[in-house]
Amino acid sequence: MPEIFVTVFDVFMRTYPGFLEASVVTLELTAIGVILGTVIGLVFALMKISGSKILRGIANVYITVIRGTPLIVQIMFLYFGIVEIYTMSNFWAGAIALGVHNGAYIAEIFRGAIQGIDPGQREASLSLGMNRKQTMQRIVFPQALRRSIPPLGNQFIITLKDSSLVYIIGVAEIFSLANREAAQSYQAFESFLVVALYYLVLVMIFTFLLRLYENKLDVDKA
């Protein structure tokens, strides 16, 4: 067997207890980033399609600023802006940064899906005597949500990979572990190869679960 396989295997065996622990942190960051991002995204999507100029303006500013600046800057900004002022752990600063970042992208996913629903759906609902709120809650949004699931799934996967950036504020997720391992062992190539495999496996599991869920939705609707 070539030398490289042996050394990668060595690094893998030496580091897997640490990586398993750090994987939990990565998954927690991802989960919080996604859940928080979905809540924020929903609020801003509704603001963006609302009748109020002020709400639309606020949503536009938020989305433009977040999409126009790098995530790593947002993480640093939140870290120094929040952790310094309020006592908050690095983990939460990172998770909130991911959520705020995701919120802008998810807002656009929801907005696109809601506006993509045939106007006839809204008209049919209104013509039956349902008010605007009932029409949104019971007719438009459930259909938009279904349409959002594939792009949301995509966003989840991006979040999983983006969570690596919070290593910059010292959160013990898998990338920071690989980074430390590389520095300490002088086996940088092997360490980053191993962490790449962790991400790859996590993403593949995610993708598989998403596909199962999408198939289930298709069957329900048929």
Binding site: G120, E123, S125, L126, S127, G129, N131, I139, Q143
Partner: peptide
């Protein structure tokens, strides 16, 4: 909404709720 409830409307493209 109350007034619309008293006036039924049938559309060219049906507009049934697909979900």
């Amino acid at each position: 909404a109350k007034i619309r409830a008293e006036v039924g409307m049938v559309f060219q493209h049906f507009n049934l709720f697909p979900h």
